[in-house]
Design a protein around this nucleic acid. Sequence first.
DNA 1: GTAACGCTGTGAATTATTTCACGGAACATA
DNA 2: TATGTTCCGTGAAATAATTCACAGCGTTAC
Lengths: 214, 214
Amino acid sequence: MNKAISDKVIGRLGQYRRLLGRLAEEGARFVFSHDLASMARVTAAQVRRDLMVLGASGNPAKGYSVSGLLEDIEAFLDAPDGQNVALVGVGNLGRALLAFFAGRSTKLRIVAAFDANPEKTGRVIHGCRCYGMDALEAEIQREAVTVGVIAVPADAAQEIAEHLIETGIRGLLNFAPVRLSVPANVYVEDIDMTVSMERVAYMARQNAVSLEKL
Amino acid sequence: MNKAISDKVIGRLGQYRRLLGRLAEEGARFVFSHDLASMARVTAAQVRRDLMVLGASGNPAKGYSVSGLLEDIEAFLDAPDGQNVALVGVGNLGRALLAFFAGRSTKLRIVAAFDANPEKTGRVIHGCRCYGMDALEAEIQREAVTVGVIAVPADAAQEIAEHLIETGIRGLLNFAPVRLSVPANVYVEDIDMTVSMERVAYMARQNAVSLEKL
DNA sequence: GTAACGCTGTGAATTATTTCACGGAACATA
DNA sequence: TATGTTCCGTGAAATAATTCACAGCGTTAC
C-alpha cells in the first residue's frame, strides 16, 4: 500500500497545477523548482518534495517540463472521467458557489443543486438545476455524484451531511459553521469563514502591535 | 516577549468560543475538556493545551466555567473596541459574504464595500454601503478599518491587496485564487475554494478506493 | 474527617512537516 | 572531450504540532 499522502501536499499540488497552467499559457516550456516555489510562496525544497509523490522528474539543466508536470499532476489528482458534485443550499452563498464553479473545470462539475425552499425547485442557476430535498438521493445516484458541498445554515448541516453520506458520498466541502460528525471513511473539509475572519482580525492586530514595538 | 501563538491555536480558540456560546445558551455552567474536545473533534489534551495560552484554569472536579472561558477567549481574541472590515469586490461572492457577516458580530463589522463597477456605487447591500474604488483610501481611514476582504477576480487581487496595504491594513482574507505577494508584516489568509474542492474530490476518491480494498 | 475519584496542567515523547545540504547528473562552453 | 555550472533528488536534521501520561488537587460520598 502506498503511504498516505497528506492533505497539505494535495493542496499544494493543486496550487502548482494552477501556476503551471498560467505558465503554459505564457508559453513557458520549462520551469525550475525555485520558480514554482516563489510563485507558490513556498521553498524550492518543498516543491521538489511535493513533486516526488508524482514520480515526476526534472532535468538539472532545464528544470521541469511544464506540460509534463501538468500531465503528471492531472493524472494524480483527477479522476479519469471526472467527478460530479452536488450542492445543497441555494442561498446567497450557494448561488455564489454556483457562479464561481460554473464552467471552471471539466473534471469537477456541479451537476445538481438542492434546496428545502420549494420556490427554488426547477430553477436553473448558473447552468445548474435546482431540486427539492426529496429528489436528493435519486438525483445523486443518477448522476453518480461523489462530492457534496454543504451551504446551508448551521443547524441543518449535520442532518444534510448524514443524508449525503447515506447516498454514498465520501467527500464533503462544508461551509456551515459547525463541526460535522461523520464516519472515518468520509473526508470533510471545513471552510469556516467566521473562524477565518476572526483569525485575520487577530493577526492583523498582532502585526499592528509588533510594529509599534520597533 | 510572548512566544508567538500559532494560527492553528487561534483558529481552535475561535471554535471553542462558538461551542461555548452554544453551551451557554443551553444553560451549561461547566464543561470538561473532553466535552469541548468531542464537540470540536480534537483530543482533550489539545483543548487543555490551547486553553493554556489564555492562562485560564479549570477545576478538576467541575471542569471549566463556561462563562469564564467565554470571557477569557473574548479578552484574548477580540479587540476591546472591535475592528472594522472592508470588503472589496461586490460580485456574487462579495454579496454572499455581506449577507453572511451582516449583524453576525459586534466586534467585527463590515463597514464598507468597494467595487470597480460604478453601478454598484451608492447602493446599500445587506446594510453595507458600496463605494467606488476611488473612495477606498479615504473611507478606510475614516472608519479606521484594519481588515480587508478580497472578493475580486484573480487578476485584480494583487493590485487591490497592495492598495489596501498602502492604506495601513495589516490583515487580509483573500478569496481570489492567487497567492498574494505582501510584506512580512501583513497576514494573509487564503480561502481557496478551487483547491479545497479539488482536495475533497481527491480524498473522496481515496476513501472510495480504500473501501474496495476491504 | 478521610478516602476515592476523575479531572486539570504540563513536561516529555511522539509524530508530522519542513528545511538543510550534498552527491550526482545534464547541459553549455571551449 | 574536458570542465564548470546549476539544479534535481533525497537522506538526514530541524522544527512544529500533537499526544501521552502522570503528579496533584478539588469535590463528593461516606
